[in-house]
Protein backbone atom coordinates (compact mmCIF):
# COMPACT_ATOMS: atom_id res chain seq x y z
CA UNK A 1 0.00 0.00 0.00
CA UNK A 2 1.39 3.43 -0.84
CA UNK A 3 1.52 6.27 1.67
CA UNK A 4 -1.66 7.93 0.48
CA UNK A 5 -3.66 4.70 0.71
CA UNK A 6 -2.16 4.06 4.14
CA UNK A 7 -3.25 7.46 5.35
CA UNK A 8 -6.73 6.92 3.92
CA UNK A 9 -7.03 3.54 5.69
CA UNK A 10 -5.91 5.17 8.95
CA UNK A 11 -8.52 7.86 8.45
CA UNK A 12 -11.27 5.30 7.78
CA UNK A 13 -10.29 3.19 10.81
CA UNK A 14 -10.29 6.24 13.03
CA UNK A 15 -13.66 7.47 11.78
CA UNK A 16 -15.18 3.99 12.15
CA UNK A 17 -14.00 3.43 15.69
CA UNK A 18 -14.49 6.94 17.11
CA UNK A 19 -17.64 7.60 19.13
CA UNK A 20 -16.58 10.93 20.63
CA UNK A 21 -13.59 13.14 20.01
CA UNK A 22 -12.98 16.56 21.51
CA UNK A 23 -10.15 19.04 21.65
CA UNK A 24 -10.42 22.27 23.67
CA UNK A 25 -11.13 23.66 27.13
CA UNK A 26 -12.83 21.29 29.58
CA UNK A 27 -15.41 23.58 31.14
CA UNK A 28 -18.62 22.44 32.81
CA UNK A 29 -20.69 23.05 29.69
CA UNK A 30 -18.47 20.86 27.51
CA UNK A 31 -18.35 18.15 30.17
CA UNK A 32 -22.12 17.98 30.32
CA UNK A 33 -22.52 17.72 26.53
CA UNK A 34 -19.95 14.90 26.32
CA UNK A 35 -21.43 13.12 29.35
CA UNK A 36 -24.87 13.21 27.71
CA UNK A 37 -23.35 11.87 24.50
CA UNK A 38 -21.80 8.92 26.32
CA UNK A 39 -25.11 8.02 27.93
CA UNK A 40 -26.92 8.35 24.59
CA UNK A 41 -24.34 6.45 22.47
CA UNK A 42 -24.21 3.51 24.87
CA UNK A 43 -27.82 3.38 26.02
CA UNK A 44 -28.00 -0.28 24.86
CA UNK A 45 -25.35 -1.28 27.42
CA UNK A 46 -26.16 0.42 30.77
CA UNK A 47 -23.35 -1.30 32.72
CA UNK A 48 -20.65 -0.09 30.35
CA UNK A 49 -22.35 3.26 29.90
CA UNK A 50 -22.22 3.94 33.64
CA UNK A 51 -18.59 2.80 33.87
CA UNK A 52 -17.54 5.03 30.97
CA UNK A 53 -19.51 7.93 32.42
CA UNK A 54 -17.76 7.57 35.80
CA UNK A 55 -14.35 7.32 34.14
CA UNK A 56 -15.09 10.27 31.87
CA UNK A 57 -16.04 12.61 34.73
CA UNK A 58 -12.79 11.92 36.59
CA UNK A 59 -10.55 12.13 33.50
CA UNK A 60 -12.22 15.33 32.32
CA UNK A 61 -11.98 16.95 35.75
CA UNK A 62 -8.28 16.06 35.86
CA UNK A 63 -7.72 17.88 32.57
CA UNK A 64 -9.88 20.77 33.71
CA UNK A 65 -7.88 21.23 36.93
CA UNK A 66 -4.36 20.11 36.03
CA UNK A 67 -3.67 20.78 32.34
CA UNK A 68 -0.75 23.19 31.91
CA UNK A 69 -2.55 24.77 28.95
CA UNK A 70 -5.42 26.99 30.07
CA UNK A 71 -8.04 28.86 28.15
CA UNK A 72 -10.85 31.25 29.05
CA UNK A 73 -14.39 30.13 28.34
CA UNK A 74 -17.25 32.48 27.37
CA UNK A 75 -17.74 33.57 30.97
CA UNK A 76 -14.06 34.46 31.36
CA UNK A 77 -13.18 31.54 33.67
CA UNK A 78 -9.97 29.61 33.03
CA UNK A 79 -10.17 25.91 32.23
CA UNK A 80 -7.60 23.28 31.33
CA UNK A 81 -7.27 22.39 27.67
CA UNK A 82 -6.81 18.86 26.37
CA UNK A 83 -8.01 16.20 23.97
CA UNK A 84 -10.31 13.30 24.60
CA UNK A 85 -11.36 10.37 22.45
CA UNK A 86 -13.77 7.55 23.08
CA UNK A 87 -13.32 4.68 20.64
CA UNK A 88 -15.01 1.34 20.17
CA UNK A 89 -13.09 -1.83 19.40
CA UNK A 90 -14.18 -5.45 18.94
CA UNK A 91 -14.38 -6.37 22.61
CA UNK A 92 -13.72 -3.13 24.48
CA UNK A 93 -14.10 0.64 24.58
CA UNK A 94 -11.11 2.87 25.00
CA UNK A 95 -10.87 6.37 26.47
CA UNK A 96 -7.78 8.36 25.53
CA UNK A 97 -6.94 11.75 26.96
CA UNK A 98 -4.00 14.04 26.37
CA UNK A 99 -2.94 17.31 27.90
CA UNK A 100 0.15 19.42 28.49
CA UNK A 101 1.80 19.06 31.85
CA UNK A 102 4.61 21.05 33.41
CA UNK A 103 7.93 19.16 33.55
CA UNK A 104 8.03 19.33 37.37
CA UNK A 105 4.71 17.44 37.57
CA UNK A 106 5.77 14.53 35.36
CA UNK A 107 7.43 12.46 38.07
CA UNK A 108 4.55 12.57 40.60
CA UNK A 109 2.04 11.76 37.84
CA UNK A 110 4.07 8.81 36.52
CA UNK A 111 4.70 7.55 40.04
CA UNK A 112 0.99 7.69 40.76
CA UNK A 113 0.17 5.69 37.61
CA UNK A 114 2.88 3.14 38.46
CA UNK A 115 1.63 2.78 42.04
CA UNK A 116 -1.95 2.31 40.85
CA UNK A 117 -0.94 -0.36 38.33
CA UNK A 118 1.01 -2.56 40.76
CA UNK A 119 -1.75 -2.63 43.39
CA UNK A 120 -4.43 -5.32 43.40
CA UNK A 121 -8.05 -4.32 43.95
CA UNK A 122 -8.01 -4.52 47.76
CA UNK A 123 -4.73 -2.57 47.99
CA UNK A 124 -6.09 -0.03 45.51
CA UNK A 125 -9.14 0.54 47.73
CA UNK A 126 -6.79 0.99 50.70
CA UNK A 127 -4.75 3.52 48.70
CA UNK A 128 -7.93 5.40 47.77
CA UNK A 129 -9.00 5.58 51.43
CA UNK A 130 -5.54 6.86 52.41
CA UNK A 131 -5.53 9.55 49.70
CA UNK A 132 -9.09 10.58 50.52
CA UNK A 133 -8.00 11.40 54.07
CA UNK A 134 -5.20 13.67 52.89
CA UNK A 135 -6.13 17.34 52.43
CA UNK A 136 -6.51 18.49 48.81
CA UNK A 137 -3.54 20.38 47.39
CA UNK A 138 -0.96 18.20 49.15
CA UNK A 139 1.56 17.11 46.50
CA UNK A 140 0.95 13.53 45.44
CA UNK A 141 -2.18 13.32 47.56
CA UNK A 142 -5.66 14.72 47.55
CA UNK A 143 -6.77 13.82 44.08
CA UNK A 144 -8.23 10.32 44.03
CA UNK A 145 -9.85 10.58 40.59
CA UNK A 146 -7.23 8.43 38.89
CA UNK A 147 -7.52 5.71 41.54
CA UNK A 148 -11.28 5.63 40.98
CA UNK A 149 -10.67 5.40 37.23
CA UNK A 150 -8.45 2.35 37.78
CA UNK A 151 -11.06 0.75 40.07
CA UNK A 152 -13.74 1.26 37.42
CA UNK A 153 -11.69 0.19 34.36
CA UNK A 154 -11.03 -3.42 33.41
CA UNK A 155 -7.37 -3.00 32.46
CA UNK A 156 -4.26 -1.35 33.95
CA UNK A 157 -3.75 2.32 33.09
CA UNK A 158 -1.76 2.89 29.91
CA UNK A 159 0.19 6.12 29.98
CA UNK A 160 3.07 7.92 28.36
CA UNK A 161 4.73 11.31 28.43
CA UNK A 162 6.13 12.95 25.32
CA UNK A 163 8.53 15.93 25.61
CA UNK A 164 7.20 19.10 23.95
CA UNK A 165 9.49 22.00 24.90
CA UNK A 166 11.64 23.21 27.82
CA UNK A 167 8.68 23.71 30.13
CA UNK A 168 6.01 21.26 29.08
CA UNK A 169 5.43 17.67 28.11
CA UNK A 170 2.34 15.96 26.72
CA UNK A 171 0.72 13.42 29.05
CA UNK A 172 -1.35 10.69 27.43
CA UNK A 173 -3.61 8.32 29.29
CA UNK A 174 -5.53 5.39 27.88
CA UNK A 175 -8.23 3.53 29.81
CA UNK A 176 -10.06 0.44 28.57
CA UNK A 177 -13.42 -1.04 29.55
CA UNK A 178 -14.66 -4.43 28.36
CA UNK A 179 -17.92 -4.64 26.48
CA UNK A 180 -19.05 -7.63 28.53
Amino acid sequence: MNTAENAYQMYIDLIDSTIISYNGPFDAQVLSVIAENIEYSLSNNPRVSKKLFKIFIELAQNISYYSAERQKNDEGNLYGVGILMLREFKDHYSFSTGNLIEKKHILPVIQKCETINILDRQKLRQYKRKLRNMPSGVPGGGNIGLVQVALTADYPLEYSVVPVDDENSFYILNVRVNKN
Binding site: K50, F53, K54, E58, R132, I144
Partner: peptide, 12 residues
Protein backbone atom coordinates in the same frame (compact mmCIF):
# COMPACT_ATOMS: atom_id res chain seq x y z
CA UNK B 1 -27.36 7.11 42.36
CA UNK B 2 -24.09 8.72 41.33
CA UNK B 3 -21.39 10.76 43.02
CA UNK B 4 -17.93 11.72 41.79
CA UNK B 5 -14.75 11.40 43.85
CA UNK B 6 -14.86 15.03 45.06
CA UNK B 7 -18.36 14.40 46.39
CA UNK B 8 -17.18 11.19 48.05
CA UNK B 9 -14.80 13.31 50.16
CA UNK B 10 -17.77 15.37 51.30
CA UNK B 11 -19.72 12.23 52.16
CA UNK B 12 -16.78 11.22 54.36
Amino acid sequence: RYFNTSSSKCII
